[in-house]
């Protein structure tokens, strides 16, 4: 099948940072797989072993070369270690994908300071540390692509989700500001915004019974695979004039009144 050569990530090195467990955040393995399929060598930095193992497994299974490391993305030393290890192994870092978001829903008046700080730490501080560490290396290389995976709640509100919404808005703003600050260093910073996703392969008829699914203009929940090709575009050389932007892949949610 003909595809544009400029989508290929041949010889690129990607760090994929993934939070949570496979139960709580299922995206990371699909992101690693997509980058590997497009030709990148992938270094997975995960908080939990199941996410790391599954990501490495998927990326290798598609014919890639992937390695993993466990880390706490909110810890400055850990983040430095991730980049040192990735550089030792692959010699460069061209791509950073941050899938760092811990979901959290609770009536706002009940949210404790601890919970708030955990959410902001895992969702914002982590992205700050990863981007800063990547940017230093990418500026030295004169090239880089950063993609932050965020939620439509970066722009929309939701009951019981104030802290999470604030964290997503923060990452979107980080994305825009870094795109400007690093634009002249040939670093592009963009985001992919998701909506209601599930990795369960429910038969369409089952899925459509849910009220939430009827609310989505495309009448189905997204699957992590739905965002994979957009990730390939945003991390490739063909994405050069697009920067500082969220691309929402959410079945049409953001068009909703």
């Amino acid at each position: 099948m003909p595809i544009l050569e400029e989508y290929r990530l041949t010889d690129r090195v990607a760090i994929v940072a993934g939070d949570g467990t496979l139960d709580s955040n299922v995206f990371t393995p699909y992101l690693a797989e997509a980058l590997a399929e497009a030709g990148a060598r992938v270094f997975v930095a995960a908080r939990s072993a199941d996410v790391m193992d599954e990501s490495v497994r998927r990326a290798n299974a598609i014919g890639g070369e992937a390695h993993g490391i466990l880390c706490d993305h909110t810890n400055e030393q850990d983040v430095e270690m991730v980049f040192t290890e990735a550089l030792n192994r692959f010699g460069r870092v061209d791509i950073l994908v941050n899938n760092l978001r811990t979901e959290f829903g609770k009536s706002f008046d009940q949210v404790t300071v601890d919970e708030y700080e955990t959410v902001m730490g895992r969702n914002v501080r982590s992205v700050f540390l990863m981007c800063r560490a990547a940017g230093t290396r990418m500026m030295a290389q004169g090239r880089g692509r950063i993609v932050n995976i965020i939620s439509g709640l970066a722009e929309r509100g939701l009951w019981n989700s104030a802290a999470y919404c604030a964290s997503q808005g923060a990452v979107l703003q980080l994305t825009k500001a870094l795109a400007l600050e690093w634009g002249r260093h040939n670093i592009r910073v963009n985001a992919i915004g998701t909506g209601w996703f599930s990795s369960e392969e429910l038969p369409l008829e089952e899925a459509q019974k849910e009220l939430l699914v009827r609310f989505i203009p495309l009448r189905r929940k997204g699957h992590p695979r739905d965002i994979a090709p957009a990730l390939v575009y945003l991390t490739s050389d063909s994405c050069d004039y697009t920067t500082g932007q969220p691309i929402y892949i959410d079945g049409g949610l953001m068009a909703h009144p």
Partner: peptide
């Protein structure tokens, strides 16, 4: 590749 993208 963009099948789930709509209204964006």
């Amino acid at each position: 590749a963009s099948d789930y993208m709509n209204g964006e």
